Computed example of a mutant assay.
Amino acid sequence: MTQAAHTAPPKTKQKKDARDIRADAQKIANSIKIEGQTPIETKAIANGIQRGMEMFLRQQSEKARELDKRVKKVKQLSNQLTQQKSDDVKEESATTQTNPRLPWVLLALSWGLFLVVGIIGFVVNSPS
């Protein structure tokens, strides 16, 4: 036994916010009501407060979007920077891999010079 339930479509956050804003504006207008003020005047004040609240919320959402754009740009720049650093590290490691021969070459040269100096010193100082 199925029952066709007619439910209202899910309410979006914006519509709920608009209803909340309208209710809040009406509460504020009623709280600042002056003696002798007509209901039409109170409704006009509530409408003004509502417009002001909506304008404020729009400005805040614009600021939030701008901030999100800036954060996104900073993240992109930081990703590019880290990528460049990793490329630099790879290049440095490639250059350090060709340098391990240098200490061995210098060691061989120093021993060669030591032997040459030793032999010359022996030949010069030997009794003839």
Rank of each mutant, 00 (worst) to 15 (best):
N30R: 07
L77E: 15
L57H: 05
I32W: 04
K69M: 09
Q59S: 11
E92I: 14
T82C: 08
D68A: 15
T38N: 05
R58I: 11
D68Y: 11
E66V: 01
T95H: 10
A94Y: 05
N30Y: 07
P39T: 05
T95W: 09
K72W: 01
Q83L: 10
K75H: 14
E92F: 15
E91K: 03
G36H: 00
Q60I: 07
R51F: 00
V89K: 03
G52R: 04
E91D: 07
A25C: 06
Q83C: 09
E54N: 07
I49G: 03
E92P: 06
Q26W: 02
I21V: 14
A44V: 07
I28Q: 04
I28K: 06
R58E: 15
E92D: 12
Q50I: 04
T96Q: 13
N47T: 02
Q59T: 12
E54H: 02
V71L: 12
S93G: 03
D68N: 13
L81C: 03
I32Y: 00
I28V: 11
Q80C: 06
A46E: 06
E66P: 00
Q37S: 06
A94D: 11
A64I: 13
D20N: 14
Q37R: 00
S93P: 00
K85H: 08
I45K: 08
V74M: 12
I45A: 06
D87R: 15
I49P: 02
N47H: 04
R22T: 10
I32T: 02
L81R: 03
V74L: 15
K69I: 07
K33N: 01
E62C: 01
A29M: 04
L77K: 13
N47Y: 03
K72Q: 13
E35L: 01
T38R: 13
L77N: 14
D88F: 13
K33T: 03
L81G: 08
Q80M: 09
K90W: 08
D87L: 09
S61T: 10
E66F: 00
K33G: 00
